[in-house]
């Protein structure tokens, strides 16, 4: 959001989450919300990451542990399925990987700059010891 002059914003430094009126936000998913430019949803902290989580849906059982324990609302779950990661909001903490119960894990951390396909190509095999 561009830095505005003193005469260009709402008095009282009040921020509004949405551009338009919302009816029942608790049942409106992100893609259907009229986010305002002041909503941090529209911002990115992607550049905080040193490592990124990569999702391998071949092993995912949709347990949703990653969804509930993600501190940054960055696990995208729709219709009870894990469908991906929101890399604008993921800070790369690695909690999702730690709580992933599958073997091999369905989420692993990789260097931020490593190519996604390369990450998936080198996915580890099932670890017998981990069981």
């Amino acid at each position: 959001m561009a830095n505005k002059g003193w005469d260009e914003f709402d008095a009282g430094a009040i921020l509004f989450s949405f551009n338009d009126k919302v009816d029942n936000i608790a049942t409106t998913l992100a893609e259907d919300r009229p986010y305002s430019p002041s909503n941090s949803f529209t911002a990115s902290v992607g550049d905080w990451r040193i490592e990124k989580p990569i999702f391998n849906k071949d092993y995912c059982i949709d347990c949703q542990f990653c969804w509930i324990y993600c501190p940054d609302v960055s696990i995208i779950a729709r219709d009870k399925k894990m469908i991906g990661i929101d890399f604008d909001h993921c800070k790369g903490c690695g909690i999702c990987v730690e709580v992933c119960p599958t073997n091999p894990k369905s989420l692993l951390m990789f260097d931020e700059h490593k190519d996604d396909d390369e990450c998936l190509a080198g996915w580890p095999e099932k670890d017998e010891k981990e069981k």
């Binding site: 941090s40 940054d72 609302v73 960055s74 909001h89 800070k91 903490c93």
Partner: peptide, 18 residues
């Protein structure tokens, strides 16, 4: 079922990773 919730807390907040 819980994962169908529409969060009312947003990312790109400035809390520490983790």
């Amino acid at each position: 079922e819980f994962s169908t919730s529409a969060d009312r807390f947003e990312g790109a907040n400035l809390l520490c990773p983790g």
